[in-house]
């Protein structure tokens, strides 16, 4: 893949410091409010994530940023332009990888890329050159002449990512890029996305996987019920809303709550889930020792580092993946 045109020509417009700039952004469908007044700023070159459970308003936000869904109210500027007026001009500089692959099933892998390039007004020869280069990049060169249907889920997703890159976009929007993929395919997608980030492409992604957010995002917002409930880097969020370590305890009982009282005083905080109890502590080993000192005998004990899952649990009282 050729070096991507990373450095922008000196911003023509002061708001171009933020490639995406939203204030009080709202999206309603009839009575239902999908996005309820969010503020977002995405800088050039960063990987920005929207983390939240299904129905949090992530995809609606992405569709507004992709200029295919007009905001109900609020300010939205993308690349310094107004999506309501300049949709086609903005989309010319975006790459979009939707949640559900909408590849052209009547065409081969390569034709999917060349045809798509034509929608951007890219010349035939150049389209062909970029298609081959991108197929190489997403490791599908051998399947270039295969139709879409026989490709595996991971291959289709990689092809969709390649398609999103065909216009050499300044920003790539990825809506749940690895949902539904097996672990091996996920890692391959992550690895390719990381490569793009290194090339200076701005990535905006949604996910409900905390490990994905931790792996890929420089900065993220946590969304719940159409609102932003927290913002920062993964590390900052964990420091702010969680402890250094977590001890997960499972007791042989129908109701884990019965044990909650007996754990009182260990660590900063405690969460009771239907199947286990989480202790938020600074030192996991020390806390585990204390549990045993109180002669409680959990069926299993796991001490681990804090993750975004814990941040989300703390902020909303719910887990990310139900």
């Amino acid at each position: 893949m050729e070096p991507h045109p990373t450095a922008p020509p000196a911003a023509q417009n002061p708001t171009e410091d933020f490639l995406i700039h939203a204030r009080g952004l709202v999206k309603r469908f009839g009575d239902f409010t999908a996005v309820d007044g969010i503020d977002v700023d995405v800088r050039r070159g960063e990987a920005f994530g929207f983390l939240g459970p299904n129905g949090a308003g992530k995809s609606s936000t992405m569709r507004m940023i992709g200029c295919v869904s007009p905001p109900t109210s609020g300010v939205l500027e993308i690349l310094g332009l107004d999506p309501r007026r300049d949709g086609p001009r903005i989309r010319a500089r975006l790459g979009v990888c939707p949640q559900l692959d909408n590849l052209d099933i009547e065409l081969t892998a390569r034709e999917n890329l060349t045809t798509y390039a034509r929608f951007f007004g890219i010349g035939r020869r150049e389209a062909r050159r970029r298609a081959d280069e991108l197929l190489e990049f997403v490791q599908l060169a051998e399947r270039a002449d295969s139709k879409v249907e026989p490709l595996s889920g991971g291959m289709k997703r990689r092809l969709t990512i390649a398609r999103a890159m065909v216009n050499q976009p300044e920003v790539v929007l990825l809506d749940e890029p690895t949902t539904g993929l097996d672990p091996q395919a996920r890692h391959l997608v992550w690895e390719r996305l990381f490569r793009l980030k290194q090339q200076g492409v701005t990535l905006v992604l949604t996910t409900h996987y905390m490990d994905e957010a931790e792996q890929l995002c420089d900065r993220l917002v946590v969304m719940d019920g159409g609102r932003i409930v927290a913002e920062g880097s993964p590390r900052e969020l964990i420091e702010r809303y969680s402890t250094r370590e977590v001890v997960e305890l499972r007791f042989n009982a129908d109701d884990q709550r019965a044990y909650a009282e007996k754990l009182d005083g260990i660590g900063e905080r405690l969460e009771v889930l239907p199947d286990r109890v989480l202790l938020y502590v600074d030192d996991g080993d020390e806390a585990t020792a204390e549990v045993h000192r109180r002669s409680l005998s959990p069926a299993s004990v796991l001490a681990r580092r804090s993750s975004l899952e814990d941040v989300f649990l703390h902020l909303t009282g719910r887990t990310l993946v139900d």
Binding site: G66, V68, G87, P88, R89, R91, A92, L94, V96, P98, L100, N102, L103, D104, I105, Y116, F119, F120, G121, R163, N167
Partner: peptide
């Protein structure tokens, strides 16, 4: 059915 136009609308085509 095949959501072809959804993909096309992510490009400058209206």
């Amino acid at each position: 059915f095949v959501r072809l136009y959804e993909g096309i609308l992510a490009t400058p085509v209206r």
